[in-house]
């Protein structure tokens, strides 16, 4: 599977010396499918490689550079819209990585702007964004009501002239999920960037990445999330750091998620780790792309889709939800 090839290359860039044309094609295809071409391009910068590959990766670096500018600009636009409110605004995920100058941001593709604000100010934040040119994306009343009642974020908003989405979070997991992270502490301990915005503390940034990966969703994009986690662990590596992260994760009810995140990122990108039988299923799931970037392990994909939903909500609610979506013509995979 070329998902495995991608992980192996990110761990040990020198092994590109063994790649033939088909190997390069599969590597680039998998990296594109996982939205990691920019990460790969940064990782392989300066190494000897065929001219065609060098050109593709140079384009990817330029493209990620432009993506970084656009992401930071979008954060600045949100800052300007929200500054008059005087509420804390915490950047999350990719935008936080590049705003804080972290290695996890090198070449990372960044789509939506994700921010975290206190639950108590959601209404005023929403109105300030609407006044500044953001609009609703989801016209469906069921989806809208679902987001507001059960999710950890507002329904997505899109800016009408810049065409960029913003996800406004009030915590890092859906309310329906079993763990209940301490959202107030996430905000209280955030690190100011000096411009009115902040990013999560080191420990919380890792906890959020792990929560996003294992406690929410179907592990699509798992290879990239685990790369983020690997880079963050590596960046702040120091005696006792991992223990701090684990203690913090347990406080948020995410001890297991962070432990698995560390094992899998070490196994895929680091010095290796002792994996459990369940861990191996996760590895199979995240590395299931073929040489065309297509997800091949369909059964595993379906199983993790169901798992993601079971984590999000109790079974009777899940049944109701899936039935409603099915009636509306939504088909998850296929």
């Amino acid at each position: 599977m070329s998902g495995v090839l991608l992980a192996r290359t990110m761990r040990n860039p020198a092994q590109i010396a063994t790649l033939d044309a088909a190997g390069w094609t599969a590597l680039i295809g998998a990296a594109r499918a996982e939205q990691m071409l920019g990460n790969l391009a940064h990782r392989l910068e300066g190494l000897a490689m065929p001219a065609a590959a060098a050109r593709i990766l140079a384009d990817a670096r330029a493209s990620a550079g432009q993506g970084r500018i656009a992401a930071l600009w979008e954060a600045e636009m949100a800052r300007r819209a929200l500054a008059p409110l005087g509420v804390p605004v915490v950047l999350l995920k990719g935008t936080a990585f590049v705003a804080a100058g972290l290695s996890a941001g090198a070449g990372r593709s960044i789509g939506d702007l994700d921010i975290l604000v206190p639950h108590a100010v959601l209404d005023v934040v929403e109105h300030a964004l609407l006044a500044a040119g953001w609009e609703w994306v989801k016209p469906d009343p069921y989806d809208d009501a679902y987001y507001r009642r059960w999710m950890h974020e507002l329904p997505p908003l899109i800016h009408r002239s810049r065409d960029r989405m913003i996800d406004v979070h009030h915590t890092i997991l859906p309310r329906t999920a079993r763990p209940t992270p301490d959202a107030a502490l996430l905000i209280a301990d955030a690190m100011p960037l000096g411009n009115g915005l902040s990013v999560l503390s080191r420990e919380d940034m890792l906890v959020h990445a792990a929560a996003h990966l294992f406690a929410d969703g179907d592990l699509a994009g798992g290879l990239r999330n685990l790369w983020d986690i690997h880079c963050l662990l590596d960046e702040w590596d120091a005696p006792g750091f991992r223990e701090h992260v684990s203690t913090r994760a347990r406080h948020h009810g995410l001890g297991e998620a962070i432990a698995r995140a560390m094992r899998l990122s070490d196994a895929l990108y680091g010095a290796g780790a002792k994996l459990t039988a369940a861990d191996r299923w996760f590895v199979r799931r995240v590395t299931g792309r073929d040489g065309w970037g297509v997800q091949r392990r369909k059964a595993s994909e379906q199983a993790f889709y169901l798992r993601g939903h079971l984590l999000r909500m109790p079974p009777p609610m899940l049944a109701r939800h899936l039935w409603t979506k099915w009636r509306k013509g939504y088909r998850p995979i296929g």
Partner: peptide, 9 residues
Amino acid sequence: PEDGIPDFS
């Protein structure tokens, strides 16, 4: 394709 590595699939 140059070097047998296509830009796009």
